[in-house]
């Protein structure tokens, strides 16, 4: 996404309304997660969803574009999932014996810097939008466990009636060694 193109998008007469609509959708989506309404959350995910959280690495200056993040489609990442596995993760929590989330953690998602960086075919009538945002996710577990996950998200949302479906989510957690015992929550 070139800077010029982003500026052209942002000054488009439809941008502000669409940005507000998309942000509202994303806020609703994380509220479902925080409220543990997991089945309703799953319903917002497209059947062909790609849910991807790469690992990050310390690499030499100049190698960041090529090597800083693990890549989807090859090797190992934190998550490279489809809707089936996310459904399994929900089902696992719902067994009541998934001890990493039993008792359930308290999770609070904060999303900000929501920006539309692409719209296909156009901002006037978008079938898909690419949205970048920042997240701060707080997890409090049992009594004394606290984890803070901060990073960037790149989502592709697909128009679905008067709402959206999440078609792709890339989660860039700003850590190399994971500073948490588990990633047992949704992003």
């Amino acid at each position: 996404m070139s800077e010029t193109l982003e500026r052209r998008l942002a000054t488009h007469p439809r941008y502000a309304a669409l940005q507000a609509e998309v942000a509202e959708f994303l806020f609703h989506e994380v509220e479902l997660i925080d409220d543990r309404r997991y089945d309703e959350w799953l319903a917002l995910l497209a059947e062909d969803l790609v849910y991807f959280m790469p690992q990050r690495m310390n690499v030499k200056f100049g190698e960041h574009a090529a090597r800083e993040n693990t890549r989807a489609g090859t090797g190992i990442s934190w998550f490279e999932e489809d809707k089936w596995t996310l459904g399994k993760r929900v089902a696992q929590i719902q067994t009541g014996v998934h001890y990493a989330e039993e008792p359930l953690s308290r999770v609070c998602h904060m999303l900000s810097n929501v920006r539309i960086t692409a719209a296909v075919p156009s901002l006037d009538d978008p079938a898909e939008v690419t949205v970048s945002s920042r997240f701060l996710v707080y997890q409090n577990r049992v009594e004394y466990e606290n984890y803070t996950f901060i990073g960037k998200r790149h989502d592709v949302l697909r128009r679905h009636g008067d709402s959206w479906l999440v078609a792709r989510r890339e989660i860039l957690l700003d850590q190399t060694v994971l500073l948490a015992k588990n990633l047992s929550i949704f992003f």
Binding site: M53, W78, K88, H98, A100, E101, A180, K181, N182, L183
Partner: peptide
């Protein structure tokens, strides 16, 4: 990825 490590559904319970 879905089995092992901190994001793995099995090993989260170990941790």
């Amino acid at each position: 990825m879905r089995y092992s490590g901190p994001a793995g559904m099995t090993e989260q319970d170990d941790m």
